[in-house]
Design a protein around this nucleic acid. Structure first.
Lengths: 167, 167
DNA sequence: TATTGTTATACTCTATAACTATA
DNA sequence: TATAGTTATAGAGTATAACAATA
């Protein structure tokens, strides 16, 4: 509501526009409501992580590799929702940065086993801090109970995305 | 089941396949948890809405135009998070499809006032049904109370994205 | 034949910058 | 000078398809 952002000249006397926009039917569409939040979070995180040179997906990839040492590229691609071909360039970047590495596992010479390097672990730790920091406004606006509710709901919701596969 | 974290001795973990992937620190990152849900919803909706020829943003744009008759392109761009230049092509498409139209309002000949056509209203109604249908698995997995909790949390969360502007 | 990874390619989406016309 | 809209352009991001190596 308070328009005056610090530092600038008097706020442009925009007509009521902004604050009074009606979402209409979008109010009931979960996907829309979630997307605008995700857009904000994404931009806030990327702005903070800029100096690390992270690209969309590389943070997620690093986290998954770190948590699942030896994971294959194809399993990784499924988990982050990218095509396997896209993951190739992603891992190339991680290797160039020295954050992760490919190793040939003894059993199967088709696949690569992915591992995070110590340097990668450090960067990941920093990136996690940036991600949490970017979400601080949200965490600050919710009570501990609400935050717990949120994660519980996200659990249920994500699980529900796959139930129909079994029916 | 949890394989020794990155130990050097740790035997090559045979791929634990999808279901056993550990999210690691991503478990605590709201942005990641939200994004994977949004990805699913987005794809489910686009698959259903394919035959309408909707592009990303056109459903949101139609809903906002319909709920805010006479809205300007620039106000619309702010609301859906696109650049004003991007909105031009978006509205071009909506006009070509006969779903929306630009009118010059009497007061200010710089701006356009956007309106949904009757045909646009009909399509919007269909699209809304598709969106809700795409979300059906989620709605089915949540109780009425949980669904209400969800919308309440989304309200609070989105509002919190802007509070820092006032500080 | 199926699976993992790679390459080459093309397409979609979106922002940026410079411009016009109104105010 | 500031705002609404437009155009042209470039870039990021991603998928698709064909392929090689291995199983």
């Amino acid at each position: 509501m308070a328009r005056q952002a610090a530092g600038k000249i008097a706020a442009p006397p925009l007509e009521a526009d902004d604050a009074e926009i009606d979402l209409g039917i979008l109010n009931d569409v979960i996907g829309f409501r979630i997307r605008r939040i995700q857009n904000h979070l994404s931009r806030a995180f990327l702005a903070r992580a800029e100096r690390y040179g992270v690209k969309p997906g590389s943070f997620s990839a690093m986290a998954l590799i770190s948590a699942n040492p030896g994971i294959s590229q194809i399993a990784l691609s499924r988990e982050i929702g990218f095509d396997k071909a896209t993951v190739v360039a992603l891992i190339d970047g991680l290797e160039r940065a020295g954050w992760a590495e490919r190793r040939r596992p003894p059993g199967d010479r088709r696949r690569y086993a992915l591992y995070a390097t110590p340097k990668g672990q450090d960067v990941l730790s920093d990136l996690r801090a940036q991600a949490i920091d970017a979400e601080q406004p949200i965490r600050g606006a919710l009570t501990a109970v609400e935050l717990e509710q949120l994660f519980g709901l996200l659990d249920k919701i994500y699980a529900s995305c796959f139930v129909d596969l079994a029916t």
